[in-house]
Structure formats: structure tokens, C-alpha cells
Nucleic acid binder design. Sequence first.
DNA 1: TATTCTGCTGCTTTTGAAAACATTTTTATT
DNA 2: AATAAAAATGTTTTCAAAAGCAGCAGAATA
Lengths: 143, 143
Amino acid sequence: MFSKAAEYGIRAVIYVWGQSNKGLKMGVKDICKEIDAPEFFTAKVLQSLARLNIISSAKGPNGGFYIDEEQEEIKLIDLVVAIDGDGIFRGCALGLKQCSETNPCPIHKDFKAIRDDLTHLLQTRTIRELAQDVDKGLATLVR
Amino acid sequence: MFSKAAEYGIRAVIYVWGQSNKGLKMGVKDICKEIDAPEFFTAKVLQSLARLNIISSAKGPNGGFYIDEEQEEIKLIDLVVAIDGDGIFRGCALGLKQCSETNPCPIHKDFKAIRDDLTHLLQTRTIRELAQDVDKGLATLVR
DNA sequence: TATTCTGCTGCTTTTGAAAACATTTTTATT
DNA sequence: AATAAAAATGTTTTCAAAAGCAGCAGAATA
């Protein structure tokens, strides 16, 4: 479904959000230890997210990644598109290049419905909600 | 969503079903020309499907792949599972190894709903239906 | 000002899917 | 029997994602 980069990225951002809410900035090493993800690979994902202004970063001692006030309402779809692009929403399930409403593959309509549900889900759910679930112990990011 | 192997496999079987319905057996070369898929790669997919008795094959002149009477009610899910395995239905969206009802990732429930829809779709739709749509010109397998 | 803790960038290695190639085996037809 | 057509099998090549590694640059605190 998602790429490894997106999986790590989403988990990392959820964790960072939670810590940032407590006023903490988190280094890559700590983040990856917490969510059990490869360090250097995940670092690149977070850095590209910071470059896109989806999350923030600070260098130097007591630096790290954090969530700015203006970034508090990040939605899942923002992360997915930033990391994996919009291929999940565009491609044909059977790999046809010219698959569309007017020239559909045999399962075009069925998959459009499922894909619309997925899109709606990603557009609706915020990182805030997910981080709060983790904070309440209703969900986990590791193991 | 699906692997390339599954994409080619599904397209090929839909086409074979349609031709088989007219009493024809189709060679790999013709199949791949018709659905615009790589020949040798697709051949292996079809061979493994034949080995699993999901489709039939006959060697020699006038041989080829075809659908047996007992195989006429193939469902989409049979092909997907045979080619890609059940990973699509089991894996966690965020890559957690121990993600479950009792130990869920933050989007476990959301994705379960979507995945159930997908499963239902694949279990319900038969190759027969899809092949008939192609036959009527309501859907296409190429381009 | 210097040290040390950070993120940042580029390069290399590894892994597995995808694809191409070559060969063998089976079988209908002549 | 010979031939040609087709599936079946095994090997190799290609390529991109995933991951790891080493060095660079900025920033804060002592």
C-alpha cells in the first residue's frame, strides 16, 4: 500500500507530534529507537518533510524535529503525497495506461469506490487525532 | 496495490476466459500481444496458475491456455491470492509487525474497513462477469 | 571561541521484483 | 518417423527501492 519510507515517516511524525505537544524537540536517533525504524533512512524522510514545511527542525544542542503551531493540523494525506506522490490515487488497478471513466478496465468502477474511501480517510484524519490515540494508550507505534 | 505479475495475470485470465468461451485455446504469444504484456514474464504467471488448477493448459500444436468447465467460476480473489499471496489482507498499513485488534496501530480500524471492502469485492466478482463486460465492449484490457 | 550536538547532503551497498533469454519437454499433425 | 508448435523450466540481466555509511554545515552552550 504505502512505501517503507511513508510507513516510517508517518510513524515518526505521529511520535514527534506527541512529544512536540509536550514542548519537546526530538532527535532522529531517539525517534527511530522509539518507533523501531532504520535511522539514516528515516532521517532522510524527515528532512524532506522539513524542507516541504510539513514539519520543523532545529539544529544545535537541544535541537531536533518538532511541530510548529502552523503545522498542527497536518493531515495524513499531506504526508502520503509528500513522500509517495499521488500515484496511489491515479494508477489503474490492472496497470492500464489509458484507464479512465470513458475507457475503463473491467474493475475500474469497483476500485474507484474503494480509492475514494481511502482518499476521504486520508483527507479527514489528522496527525493530531492519531497522536492523541497513542497518548491515551489506545494505539501503538512499535512492535 | 497489486504486483505487476498479478496485473498481467488478471488481464490474461480475463482474456483467456473470453476466448475459451468461444472454444479457443490461446498461446502465450497471442495472449500477450492482445493484452500488451511481457511475454516470458506473463508465461510464468500463467504456468503457475495452471499448476494450481486455476486455469488449464495443453501442450503441442493447437494447444494453449484455456478455462475448464470446472474452472468457470474463478473469482478475482483466487487469482490475487495465488499470485501475490495474502499479504494485502494481512499486513499493517504502517508496517507494524504486531498490529491487531488488541494492539492496533493508530489507523488500524480505518484500514480494516477499507480492506474488508476490498476483500468483499474480490470475493464477489467473477472472471466471468469481467470477461463478459470486455466482450460487450463495456471495458477494455489494453492501452 | 571552541566544542559538541544537531540536521543535511551525497555516495555506496544490498535486496528483490521485473524482465529477458535459452533450453527442454510434450504433443498434434504430416 | 519427422516436424513444428506449444507449454514448462532454469538461468541471467536489469533496475529501482531500501538501507547503510561517511563527511559537511549550522547552531547553541560552556
